[in-house]
Each structure stands twice: as C-alpha cells, then as structure tokens.
C-alpha cells in the first residue's frame, strides 16, 4: 500500500512544518495540509463517508483556528528547564515508539483486519436496517446511542462557547 505510506510521509512533513513554523498563519495552513492528507488517506482506505466528513470538519477547524491566531509566534527562548523538559519528552517519545515496534507485531497486518463483529454487520446490515451504506446503518441504527452522544457533544461545545464568550461572568455588587 505504497499510497498510504506516501500520504503518511506527506502528513508527517506537514506536521513538522506546523510545529516548527515561526509564523502562526503558516502553522495553521500546514495543519490544514495534514487534514487534507488525512482526507485523501480515508479515500484510499475506502472510507468515502469519512473523507467527506474530514474535509468539512477540517475547513471548520481552519476557520476556527485562523480566528484565534495572531501573526507571529513567540521568539524561541531556552529559558528555565527547557533542556530538561525537551530531553524528557524526546526520551519518552523514543521509548513509546520503541515499545510500539515491539508490541505491534502481535497485531494483524495492514489489510488483514479480523472482522468478527463486522462480518455480521456486512452480512445482515442491509437486511435488518434497509440501508445500503453499512457505515450509515451502524451509525444510525446499531450504534445510534453513540450518535446521540456525538450530537450532545456538539451541543455542549456550543453552550460552552456561549459561556466563555460572555461579556460579564459575575455581576459585581
């Protein structure tokens, strides 16, 4: 699956640019590139619903992030315990990926998903729910409870933003 690896390398490169760019606007655009890469990968991995969703959500996130940025990032300063903290983080990351290299051998290889539960979804999904799109059948029928949670989450986020965007929180007596 060479396309997946290429897309992943592209996303990694864009992520490194996003992390290190001095200009915040470039950072946000680089994150947009990571998101577009993700959307393309979803297409390659045969998940068209997700590709569309990721594209839309990516655009929304970009709008939200750009609303929150000013032009310049802060100047680099190695103050305080910068060296200690950075070395700790890098060590943690190396240990993390090293352990993953060891443990991921026991996972099924790419392209060989064991679909114990999903076989039933594919076999009976259209029959029992009437939907041709099995993902829609799962999201809206088998696991509709999760979708209720998702809708509630958006609602909570909107109320949260309304709370934070208030002019006055506490009436001064």
């Amino acid at each position: 699956m060479i396309e997946i690896h290429l897309l992943l390398l592209f996303m990694i490169a864009a992520a490194v640019i996003a992390v290190e760019a001095k200009d915040l606007l470039s950072s946000v655009i680089a994150v947009g590139a990571v998101g577009i890469g993700l959307s393309l990968s979803f297409l390659v991995l045969k998940a068209p619903d997700l590709a569309i969703m990721q594209l839309v959500v990516e655009i929304l996130s970009l709008i939200i992030l750009i609303r929150g940025t000013i032009r310049r990032d802060l100047p680099f300063s190695a103050s305080g315990r910068w060296y200690f903290n950075t070395i700790t983080t890098v060590c943690f990351v190396i240990v993390f990926i090293g352990l993953a290299l060891l443990t991921f051998r026991s996972l099924p290889d790419l392209g060989n998903a064991t679909m114990r539960v999903s076989k039933a979804y594919i076999a009976e999904g259209m029959l029992r729910t009437g939907a041709k799109n099995i993902v829609a059948a799962i999201t809206l029928n088998y696991r509709a409870y999760d979708t209720l949670g998702e809708a509630t989450m958006i609602f909570a986020a909107v109320i949260g933003v309304l709370v934070i965007a208030r002019k006055t929180g506490k009436k001064e007596k």
Binding site: D146, G149, E150, T152, M153, A156, A157, I159, G160, V163, I164, R166, T168, G169, K170
Partner: peptide, 18 residues
Amino acid sequence: VFLEIASISVYALVAYGT
C-alpha cells in the same frame, strides 16, 4: 463518548466566571 461529554461540560463550567 460520554466521558468526553462530561469532560467538555466541566471545562466550560470551570471557566464559568470568565
């Protein structure tokens, strides 16, 4: 999912006094 719902509610509640 429900863990996230509870978490996002409490983030907003902590910020309630703005």
